[in-house]
């Protein structure tokens, strides 16, 4: 088994996918860092102060103003109310929700890339693991060795999991290293609040806990990893089912993008919550923003994703071991 994984790793590295992904992440992090830097600067100029309390106060005033407008939709209104209550809570407890520094940047980067960007990178690796063997024709050599088919597939799957972990590690390291140049490398111990409970009546703050940022980040990474593994497994299944890499990528891409769009408009279509793609924003639960559909929470989303993961894995292995290869 080790030797098989070594083989898959050799091929993955020779294809230079990981390097390409690292470069893409690097460039994006640079862009985001610059954008964030600009934002902070404009804010400072506008308010004439760099004190976070003043800024937060201003944000609360902004949000309240927006809430009083009659032209916003009910759902949006609810979202705003929740974030307003949250901001107020932060202010009351004298905690900066956006403590400057590389760790905070890392957190924001992870939170905004969990549902599209990182799954996209994972997809780039996963979607051609099996289908490329078909399009090259090397599958015929691979499956005529004295190795059982499920072992061949398992070695590919383990390689995928390793690669996914690597991609997330790269994302973490690069976002810390690059943003640190601008924001400084400190801020691991900054306090952050989690455990906001979104209920029908609004925001329930009874279970709010104070965490150090590094602990919070660790959880964020765990969730990102989980989401990536699920998305990777789904792409992997498509790669087994569809022989063309491009077609497999297309299907997965369509699913991911539709998830991003759907989350904004499915609040009244309740059964949509069983789609995997509207459940990808796991880190939002940590932050305590309103879920796209009522009744969704962290454990529900993880459960849904887990079922999709298990089904995808099962289908991959059954099809791969049974299928005739032409």
């Amino acid at each position: 088994m080790n030797k098989l994984i070594q083989n898959e790793m050799m091929k993955l590295i020779a294809k230079k996918r990981l390097i390409v992904i690292a470069i893409i992440i690097g460039i994006l992090v640079m862009l985001f860092t610059y954008a964030q830097y600009k934002q902070v600067q404009t804010q400072r100029e506008k308010l004439g102060t760099s004190d976070w309390r003043t800024i937060l106060q201003q944000q609360i005033v902004d949000t309240t103003n927006r809430l009083s407008s009659s032209r916003i939709s009910d759902e949006w209104k609810k979202q705003l109310q929740i974030s307003l209550q949250q901001q107020q809570y932060y202010l009351d407890h004298d905690i900066n929700p956006a403590e400057p520094g590389a760790p905070t940047f890392m957190r924001i980067f992870l939170e905004s890339s969990i549902d599209l960007f990182i799954p996209l990178m994972v997809m780039v690796i996963a979607s051609d693991l099996v289908s490329s063997e078909h399009s090259l024709g090397s599958i015929k050599l691979l499956l005529t060795r004295p190795v059982k088919r499920w072992k061949v597939l398992l070695s590919k799957y383990i390689t995928l999991c390793l690669a996914v972990s690597l991609v997330i590690a790269i994302a973490g390291i690069l976002s810390y290293a690059i943003s640190g140049v601008v924001f400084g490398y400190k801020g691991w111990g900054a306090p952050i609040l989690t455990g906001f409970n979104v209920t029908d009546t609004g925001l329930n703050t009874s279970e709010v806990k104070l965490l150090s940022l590094w602990k919070f980040l660790l959880m964020d990474f765990g969730l990102v990893w989980f989401v990536s593994i699920v998305v990777g497994t789904l792409s992997f299944m498509l790669s087994v089912l569809i022989r063309s890499t491009a077609a497999g990528m297309g299907v997965m891409l369509a699913a991911l993008i539709s998830g991003a769009i759907l989350s904004n408009m499915v609040s009244s279509w309740e059964s949509a919550k069983y789609f995997f793609m509207v459940n990808l924003r796991l880190t939002d639960y940590m932050k305590g923003t309103a879920p796209p559909i009522e009744g969704m929470n962290l454990s529900f989303s993880m459960m849904v994703l887990f079922v999709w993961w298990a089904a995808a894995l099962l289908v991959s292995f059954i099809v791969f071991t049974k299928k005739d290869v032409y």
Binding site: M10, K11, A14, K15, L136, G137, S138, K140, L141, T144
Partner: peptide, 12 residues
């Protein structure tokens, strides 16, 4: 065996 053309990995 070689089935049809020997399709080896071109990038290795």
């Amino acid at each position: 065996c070689i089935v049809e053309n020997p399709e080896l990995y071109p990038y290795l």
